[in-house]
Every structure is written in C-alpha cells, then in structure tokens.
C-alpha cells in the first residue's frame, strides 16, 4: 500500500463567501497520477486553487506529508513541495525562454541553479533550441512544456496541473501527456484536472469525479472509463 501524500477532508471553499466546493474529501497517494474530472463549473479549478492556498477554505482540512497545510500562503505551500500550474499558459510572454527559466528559480537562493537549468535543457531539447526566443512566440505546446519546466525547477513532490492540454493541437497534446508520464516516472506525484478525460483517465491511477462542487464518484481511471453512466455524462458516450 502506498503512503498518503495529500489528504483532503471535508473541504468547502468558494468566492465571496459563497461555497462552490462542498464537503469534498479524497486522498492522493505517493507517486500516483490522480485525475479530477467533471463538467464546466464543477469546481475543479476551485479545488486546486484552494489546495494551493489561493483560496481560503470555509471548512475542511488539507494535509500534506502528514502536515496540516490548511490556510498557508501559496509561497509557503510551494516551499513544502507542491507546485501548481494554473489553467492557461503560466509563462512570461515578453521574456526569453532562458529568462523564464531564471524566473522559475526566483524563489531559490542556492548555487545549483545553473546546473538545474542545464538539466532542464537536456530533458527538453526544444527549449534549448528556443532559449533566446520570446516565450510568447512559442507554440502552445512549447509554452506548456516551458511552464512545466519552470515548475520542475523547484523540485516539487506533488505537481498540480489545471487542464494542461487545454487549447493544444492533438500533436502537442500527446507530447504533454508523454511529458506528464515521464514526470511521474521520475517520482513526481501528479494531481491534474482534465477536460480531455479519456486520455487523462487512461493515464490516471486514481480518478475523482466532481459535479456541482461535490464528489460524485471516486475510483481508478479504468473504473470511470468502464462506468456506463459516467461514460455517458463525461466522456461523450
């Protein structure tokens, strides 16, 4: 049995005093790929933002590595080893790829920064090729890879990705899913939100279905894929 990395208990949260997310509980185990699916407006982004400290939960508890992290600021949560890729492209469009990576290590003060950036270039040769181009001029897939690379520079234990494949061409999409798979192989636990549920669920060890802010279903990716009702609702039949 794998150890629990992230534990969410009775979490409610929302905007301006109105709860969007209602009493959600689940666990993410070490080294697994967990996937949150659900219709638009279900509260998927709200959930991830709450875990990252961007939103204050109105009730509930978030535990990471057996430590209560409820209510910590994003910066502190980042320091605990959780990184977050928001919906959309988390890059700085008017800076070069190299500068973006330098910004990626903004919160680091150690001496291994150069080495780590070099490692990133080895891992993602496409970024090395484009190192002096403005990030805003990269293709959507390249931008997403850059964003993932920036998050990687902080050596996270858990990486939360909010719809990483959104708006990408099918080609770029499969590159991103490959990258995610590789990250998981390198030992990073993943919690991702995906609209592209079929592809994501094939990858996922563990799936959580949200609907109207509540957990509707939880099981393995395969279970969701083979559940006829869920399949009809979220996977286009």
């Amino acid at each position: 049995m794998r150890k629990t990395l992230l534990k969410i208990e009775g979490l409610s949260s929302g905007y301006g005093g109105i709860d969007i997310l209602k009493d959600v509980s689940f666990e993410v185990k070490e080294f697994e790929v967990a996937c949150i699916i659900g219709p638009n407006g279900a509260g998927k982004s709200t959930l991830i933002k709450t875990v990252y400290g961007l939103l204050k939960p109105s009730s509930g508890k978030i535990t990471f590595k057996d430590e209560d992290i409820t209510g910590l600021s994003p910066l502190n949560i980042l320091k605990k080893g959780i990184s977050y890729l928001p919906q959309g492209r988390a890059i700085f469009p008017l800076m070069t790829v190299q500068e973006n990576l330098e910004m990626g290590v903004f919160s680091r003060r150690d001496t291994k920064i150069k080495e780590d950036i070099a490692k990133i270039y080895d891992k993602f040769p496409i970024l090395k090729e484009r190192r002096n181009q403005l990030a805003g001029n990269l293709s959507g897939g390249e931008q997403q890879i850059l964003a993932i690379a920036m998050a990687l520079l902080l050596s996270p234990t858990l990486m939360m990705l909010d719809e990483p494949s959104l708006g990408l061409s099918p080609q770029s999409m499969s590159i991103i899913f490959e990258t995610i798979k590789a990250l998981n192989k390198d030992g990073i636990t993943l919690l991702m939100v995906e609209q592209n549920a079929k592809k994501a669920l094939q990858l996922a060890d563990h799936a959580i279905v949200l609907e109207l802010g509540r957990k509707r279903f939880e099981g393995s990716g395969q279970e969701v894929l083979s559940n006829p009702e869920l399949k009809k609702l979220y996977l286009g039949g």
Binding site: Y52, L54, P74, L75, L78, K79, S83, Y84, L85, P86, G88, R89, A90, I91, F92, P93, L94, M95, E99, E102, M103, G104, V105, F106, S107, A147, M150, A151, L153, L154
Partner: peptide, 23 residues
C-alpha cells in the same frame, strides 16, 4: 536584475508568478 525581471514578470502574468513563487 533579478528583482527587476520579477517586477516585469508580475506585469506579464500574475498566475505564472504563483507557479514560480514570486511574491
């Protein structure tokens, strides 16, 4: 400078600042 670039970073993409830990 590092700080100056971080200021530009905030202007360019606030969300991305959360990713990299720019306060």
């Amino acid at each position: 400078t590092r700080l100056g670039k971080a200021i530009r970073a905030v202007a360019q993409n606030r969300d991305a600042c959360y990713v990299v830990g720019i306060d």
